[in-house]
Design a protein around this nucleic acid. Structure first.
Lengths: 349, 349
DNA sequence: CTGAAAGCGCTTACAG
DNA sequence: CTGAAAGCGCTTACAG
């Protein structure tokens, strides 16, 4: 609200006067029209340079009743996984000539609503949304009423008007669990995350499916919730290890939780990959750098962002009929923390 | 460019008709003017709700010749340090009622220029810029010509028209080096970063100052450049350890480099904090979680972003005369990697 | 190939 | 307290 454009702004009228043409001609030059004669074209360009003219896209869009801004509404940019995804998203949209409004909601549904409305008032014609924890479909009722395309990414919401891009959480968790079973484990925990988070439900479902298909009983005590961070992982591990019949392996909600688990194992004098098998999910940058390197399910964060951009672009172009859904890859990457590869560093207990 | 606002947009004229008032009255209601009688006021609000009107801020700003958008141009959002800083920045600006256009340049000066121009065309009235590596003042000549306030954050540029917010790199590096000297080290390396990066120059200057004040000779072989990431840290450590007279301690360009150094030490059978002292810079989240916990210089990333927001707001309000400069804190945090605290985990060589 | 005129959605003096 | 009119910076038929 604060500020004007400085001293009186240079407009196409000024350019027209300086170049000795009408303002329509200037407008045509601005749009690269072939209708303008080269000599006038050059005069206009020269005047633009000389007067330091800057195109007022808002005015143009107002007249044409179009807009090229899209909203990117992200739950938590300080999480490297989401940051990576956002970067892929933003680059793809920018390449397509759209101008992305990017906002961080810090996992606050309230701020999310505020920000989406501000973007709308500024002409957003579509959104990519990674919803804040606790967002439900009702929170988006106002957004829905706008009738604009919205694509959720990573966190699916239960609403049929939304497009979505998610990794194959169920399949990835199933394959990871199958790998642990193949290594001979029979007591496999599922550690971390919160019931109610869609991602948690899906990954846990993959774990359950693998156990069921192996004919193993489902012990509810082996699935323990936590905050989805390192501390949560550490706490959850303590919980599960204090069971009468503790597990020998854990599939973790994500890599960050898995790293917490590895530290907690160290604290108990146990080494991941030797005394206990740990598998993560996401394949964040830290996964390969921690000791032992973390076996995990790789999710292509940047690609997920690009997929979301693709869907949004199709919706905006009107070539897509109704909401679209893309499921991204979730590939098991075997490193040392599950004990399948030889851990490179010999350690005394 | 793609898209109109869907089916014909609801405007204040529609609201005026529906509420049986003139459009000026609607406009006054929108601005919360006390001039409108309560009964008409309510009628208007009701019509707004019923017709699903959304305020067209672009049109309003065009008419008033003002704008509330500011540009946030960030080098690399996938780096947790910059992500954190950005979040502080964005929140502060949003709270002030501005609407921040956030863009990631991926360390590309070209993309940076493109993005800043696009923002300008969309009405940006000021910028906070964390410049891409390799940006020099000339790259910003066009930006400068716009005459808008620009605040750089973290990476200072040599240009007197820019405001800046930076941590106390020189002081922090000096204090860290003094601590290593106090612990008895005499061969202290400065590892990582690239000559030409202002941050590198400043931190290196702090290291040099401490050595000089201690009366120690400056051995140029002890300062080795690297890419500012883990791999760079690992490579740089190898370089410095292969000297005829290797160091016993290293001040690292940043924490990420320091973590690379710690891993490389492990690879040589050495333990940071016991066989070799390592100090980082930044205090990223990983610093306290790695083993051994990293002694480092804490930079308040979020605060830096908030400082930058403060400066920009003052410039926009016109209360600041000329460019402003803020230097943020840089506090030494002693953990185990420098050997001052007892490393908690006993390990065999 | 170029110029005069209308209009995008809003705000703001200015009458009444 | 409210309405008619002009105008922000642009684009787009429409004449010529």
């Amino acid at each position: 609200m604060l500020k004007g454009g400085g001293q009186s702004r240079v407009t196409i009228v000024d350019i027209a006067r300086a170049a000795g043409v009408s303002k329509s001609t200037v407008s045509l030059v601005l749009q690269g029209s072939p209708l303008v004669k080269p000599d006038k074209y050059d005069k206009v360009r020269e005047a633009i340079q000389r007067l330091g003219y800057v195109y007022h896209r808002g005015a143009a869009n107002l007249r044409r009743s179009v807009s090229d801004v899209v909203g990117l509404v992200i739950n938590d940019l300080t999480n490297p996984f989401f940051a990576e995804m956002t970067v892929g998203l933003e680059a793809a949209l920018q390449t397509a000539g759209l101008i992305p409004f990017l906002a961080n909601t810090g996992e606050s549904p309230t701020r999310q609503a505020l920000v989406m409305r501000a973007m709308r008032e500024h002409g957003a014609v579509g959104y990519v949304l990674c919803p804040a924890i606790g967002t439900n479909a009702d929170d988006l009722a106002e957004v829905r009423a706008w009738g604009l395309p919205v694509t959720t990414v990573m966190r699916r919401l239960l609403a049929d008007w939304l497009s979505s891009v998610t990794p194959d959480n169920v399949g990835g968790a199933r394959r990871a669990t199958e790998h642990l079973l193949w290594l001979g484990h029979r007591r496999i925990a599922f550690v971390g995350g919160r019931v109610g988070m869609v991602v948690h439900e899906e990954r846990r479902a993959g774990w359950e499916t693998a156990l069921r298909q192996a004919g193993l009983p489902l012990d509810p005590a082996l699935a323990v919730e936590s905050t989805p961070n390192r501390d949560g992982g550490a706490v959850a591990l303590q919980r599960v290890m204090s069971l009468a019949d503790p597990p020998t392996a854990a599939l973790c909600f994500n890599d960050v939780v898995a790293i917490g688990v590895i530290y907690a194992l160290n604290g108990r004098g146990l080494a991941a990959g030797r005394d206990f098998a740990v598998v993560g999910f996401d394949d964040i940058a830290d996964a390969r750098l921690i000791h032992p390197p973390l076996t995990t399910v790789a999710v292509e964060s940047r690609r997920l962002g690009e997929h979301a951009a693709t869907i949004l672009l199709e919706q905006l172009a009107g070539t897509a009929a109704g909401p679209q859904h893309i499921t991204g890859d979730a590939r098991l990457i075997v490193r040392a923390s599950c004990g399948a590869a030889g851990a490179p560093q010999p350690k005394a207990a």
